Simulated scan of single mutants.
Amino acid sequence: MSEQAVHVQKPGWVTVNVFNRAVAWLTRRGISVWGSRILAVRGRKSGQWRRTPVNLLTFGGERYLVAPRGHVQWTYNMREAGGGRLLLGRRVEEFTAAELGDDEKVPVLRAYLKRWKAEVGVFFGGVGPNSSDEELRAIAPRHPVFRLTSGQER
């Protein structure tokens, strides 16, 4: 899928300048807000570490990262790098990541929306945790989902 062909809904000013910054600030100090972490992943072009706040979902004994805003820079970088680091204060956890196929995403998207719909629901075009499997499957191609396998914590 080409980067130019994918529509990404940009977050609003309040989300970027107030909410994301507040959550990132707390997370960097070791306070998780509903599963928040700082994702660090190497840039696919620069090789430099890039950081962004994310919501870490634990579901069915597995851990996932969902891209509510769609195919964004961290998702392209994750595909290239195959993993990264999750930061919570001074705690650093390395992980590998495997991207789910669209059919596998339905229960994960439902669980993600059940937990964070108030925060990210606007990015899912009216689809929520009570939507049908068909509705969730229809939006699945627009929202990358990665299953994480823990590596080493330091």
Rank of each mutant, 00 (worst) to 15 (best):
E135H: 04
T96R: 15
R142S: 07
L113I: 00
S36H: 04
Y112K: 09
A24E: 03
V6N: 14
K45C: 14
L39R: 02
A24M: 06
F123L: 01
R110P: 01
R85A: 11
V92R: 14
R37L: 08
Y112T: 02
V23K: 09
R154E: 06
R137K: 10
V145T: 11
F146D: 01
H71W: 11
E80Y: 13
L86F: 08
N130A: 13
V23R: 09
R37D: 09
R115K: 14
P68V: 05
S150P: 15
F123W: 01
R142Q: 08
E3M: 06
A24T: 02
R28G: 02
A138S: 05
G70K: 09
G121R: 03
R42W: 08
G84M: 15
N130W: 10
V23F: 04
L113C: 03
L65N: 12
N77A: 14
L87H: 14
R29F: 02
E119F: 09
L88E: 04
T15E: 13
V23A: 03
K117M: 10
V106T: 14
T58Q: 14
L148P: 07
L136F: 05
D102N: 10
N55A: 15
L113W: 04
R44I: 12
V54W: 02
G12R: 01
V92H: 07
G43F: 07
E134Y: 08
V54M: 08
V106Y: 02
Q9T: 07
S132K: 11
R50Y: 09
G89C: 05
V66M: 12
P107Y: 06
F146K: 00
V120R: 09
W116C: 01
S132C: 06
T27E: 07
R91Y: 09
V14L: 08
L136G: 02
T58R: 15
V122E: 11
R50M: 15
G43Y: 06
S32I: 06
F59H: 07
Q48F: 10
V6S: 12
V16M: 14
Q48I: 10
S150I: 02
T149R: 05
E119Y: 07
P144E: 08
H71C: 12
G101Q: 06
V120Y: 10
G47I: 03
L26R: 00
A24G: 05
W25V: 13
V145G: 04
W13R: 00
A5W: 00
A138M: 01
V92D: 13
S132L: 08
W13C: 04
R115S: 01
V16E: 13
N55H: 13
E135I: 00
W49A: 01
G12A: 00
E99I: 03
V66D: 13
N77T: 07
A138G: 04
S46R: 11
G125T: 00
L57C: 04
A118M: 03
R51L: 10
R29V: 07
Y64F: 15
M78D: 06
P11Q: 12
L26Y: 02
K45E: 11
S46P: 00
G128S: 04
N77M: 03
H7R: 05
P11T: 00
G70M: 08
S150T: 13
W74E: 12
E93L: 12
D102C: 09
I38M: 14
K117I: 05
R85Q: 15
R110S: 02
S132T: 04
R63H: 10
D103E: 12
R79L: 14
H143T: 01
T149C: 13
G89D: 08
